[in-house]
């Protein structure tokens, strides 16, 4: 019986230890000087503002002495787990994982839009002109169920076949770099790609585009958002403002001084400066803090069964700076509000 007791104690210890490790919620009185801000980002040119923020130390500009922890995550799914576990304060992610998380009751809201498209389905097969031309065993590689790309495919399938799930059998889940290799080696019929892989593939004369994200979505969309936990936002107003403004700065740098931004980004993505500049100024690329298509995305995701509820008003899913950006007109919607449908 003694052995059992020891076992039990060890088990309890392990469980309780993991429970009380660092959870920095900051200290209001401490003038934000010793604060640690944990930010999750992902790899891809859509996340360029995050990398500019990090390399140019833009948050530190507003919050000298703050400690910023940047972490790169492999997918929105992994970021969601970290958010739910309160291991990160800010995250860069696509709309679907954010809405899934919000729907499940994780206390997070949108801070800002980061980037809007483009993305699209690229193939080498001359016979494929639309997704309807895909044969039974043709596969489309994409980052997985519930990714922005997957939702777009479902939207198109809903339009053409009246069933969002009709194309689900064709999906092969892979990371973008793996998918690009598979496409170049002709092992998958198509790849629903995003930057920089999308641009790399389209630069290849043997490849052509079947469907753009914008066509599938039926309008402008935000590809990447920045989100924050409500806890961090409520407890650290100065730090929240600093991170938000650093993001705005980064977006402005990319838009106003793209050469400068390309110089910073090129080594991160292992691309030449000229190529990076070409990719961040590609037709339809839009780095912007204004959200697009937010509620349309939510409505479709409810229809397709990903989420159970739709945000009733923008304040359900966004912090005050987005609410202010939307504006409010009596009796009608503002132009920015209209962009959300």
């Amino acid at each position: 019986m003694n052995r059992w007791l020891i076992f039990l104690v060890i088990f309890m210890l392990i469980f309780s230890l993991t429970g009380c490790s660092t959870s920095t919620s900051g200290n209001n009185t401490d003038a934000n000087q010793n604060i640690t801000i944990r930010i999750a980002t992902q790899y891809g040119l859509q996340y360029a503002p995050a990398q500019i923020m990090e390399k140019k130390q833009l948050i530190e500009k507003y919050l000298p002495g703050a400690k910023i922890e940047w972490q790169t995550f492999p997918s929105g799914g992994a970021i969601n787990e970290a958010l739910a576990a309160n291991r990160i304060d800010f995250a860069f992610m696509g709309p679907p994982p954010f809405l899934i998380s919000w729907d499940k009751g994780v206390k997070i809201k949108l801070v800002s839009s980061v980037q809007g498209g483009p993305n699209g389905i690229v193939t080498y097969r001359q016979d494929i002109k639309s997704i309807m031309d895909l044969k039974d065993d043709d596969k489309i590689a994409m980052p997985g169920i519930g990714s922005t790309q997957h939702i777009f495919l479902q939207m198109e399938s809903d339009k053409l076949l009246n069933d969002p799930h009709a194309m689900d059998d064709k999906i092969l889940s892979m990371s973008h770099p793996d998918a690009m290799n598979a496409l170049l080696n002709r092992q998958v019929a198509a790849h629903f790609a995003s930057a920089p892989y999308y641009f790399e593939e389209l630069s290849n004369p043997a490849m052509h585009e079947v469907l753009t994200g914008r066509e599938a979505f039926g309008g402008e969309f935000t590809h990447i958002f920045m989100v924050a936990t409500e806890e961090f936002h409520n407890n650290n107003p100065m730090a929240y403002a600093a991170v938000y403004h650093a993001l705005v700065d980064a977006v402005a740098i990319i838009n106003e001084q793209p050469e400068n931004a390309a110089k910073i980004l090129a080594p991160i993505y292992n691309l030449s400066e000229e190529k990076t500049l070409k990719y961040i100024t590609w037709k339809e690329v839009n780095y912007s803090s204004t959200p697009y298509g937010l509620l349309k995305m939510a409505e479709f995701m409810k229809k397709a069964g990903y989420i159970k509820k739709i945000p009733e008003r923008i304040s359900d899913i966004a912090f005050e700076n987005i609410i202010a950006q939307m504006g409010k007109k009596n009796g009608e919607q503002t132009e920015i509000e209209k962009l959300q449908y």
Partner: peptide, 20 residues
């Protein structure tokens, strides 16, 4: 992972994880 008829438990777990 492949969706549809060919998929196995690994894909199931991946999918559920993504859906939180």
């Amino acid at each position: 992972g492949a969706t549809g008829k060919e998929s196995g438990l690994g894909w199931y777990i991946f999918e559920k994880r993504f859906m939180l």
